[in-house]
Design a protein around this nucleic acid. Structure first.
Lengths: 139, 139
DNA sequence: TTCTTATTGAAAATCATTTTCAATAATGGA
DNA sequence: TCCATTATTGAAAATGATTTTCAATAAGAA
């Protein structure tokens, strides 16, 4: 697992530092979505002396290699830890626990006892209009 | 349409002001996702003298009544204008145009010529663990 | 029209995030 | 194992986005 993360990092020329190990350990064990500041406080609370700046920088790196994913809730940016290469999230509005949802193509089944309040699906890519405009530039 | 928005606002004791009319007009016509600052600049550019503070406050109100929806892109908060009560978005990473997707239960069909780079699905609600904990408090 | 109260805008305050820079530590190679 | 290179770290400062304040204004109800 750590080996896996190490190689993920190395692929992009990132290093697996003490701070990253510690923070990843904390983040991956509490299955809750966290803001950078909450993560920092959690680290301090667990005796991991780490700077807030480093937390921000780590989240940037981890987002790049796909190990965490940010989303908006109540105007704040939360991050979820992503164990698996591709899945979706059920996020508790009350306690911010994150439940992973795996079946992406077929009908989604919500974890037992979870009640969906609302959901959000956004697809990102390149649209037809942009392609047409871009094509037009060269004609 | 405006009548509809007016009643939506009135339900929550909000008023339909000149500024809101103008900004809604601008926002709804350009089918692009915008940051608050981009919206403000677009307004000024179109001769609508409106304060940035007002733009922020409007987006808050419009989010509450479900007329706009925020999402994260490259660390910035963008808003999409939502004409219909419930749908999903295809957002162009290049030009930020927004294409609405309507079929939510069944398989999603992407608009012709659009190429999906990645997508994001989050469900929000109350999770089983939270409910159990809460229930536990009273036992 | 008049009253009440939501809304506005400018400035100030706040809060999150990024940058800077010198010191340190992780990796690769000798 | 030791060295050299370079990514990383942390504290402080800088930046940038968002919110708050408050007096003036305008929307909607009576």
């Amino acid at each position: 697992m750590i080996t896996n993360i190490r190689s993920l990092l190395h692929e992009q020329n990132y290093r697996l530092t003490q701070e990253r190990k510690a923070l990843l350990g904390l983040f991956s064990h509490a299955n809750k979505a966290r803001t950078p500041i909450q993560l920092h406080q959690a680290a301090l609370g667990a005796g991991v002396g780490i700077g807030l700046t480093t937390v921000y920088r780590m989240l940037e790196v981890l987002t790049k290699i796909g190990l965490v994913s940010p989303f908006l809730l109540d105007g704040a940016v939360y991050y979820t830890y992503c164990t698996h290469s591709h899945h979706h999230h059920f996020i508790c509005l009350d306690c911010h626990r994150v439940n992973d949802l795996f079946d992406c193509q077929q009908e989604l089944s919500t974890p037992d006892g979870c009640v969906v309040e609302y959901h959000k699906l956004d697809l990102f890519g390149t649209c037809a209009t942009f392609t047409r405009e871009r094509f037009g530039e060269f004609n």
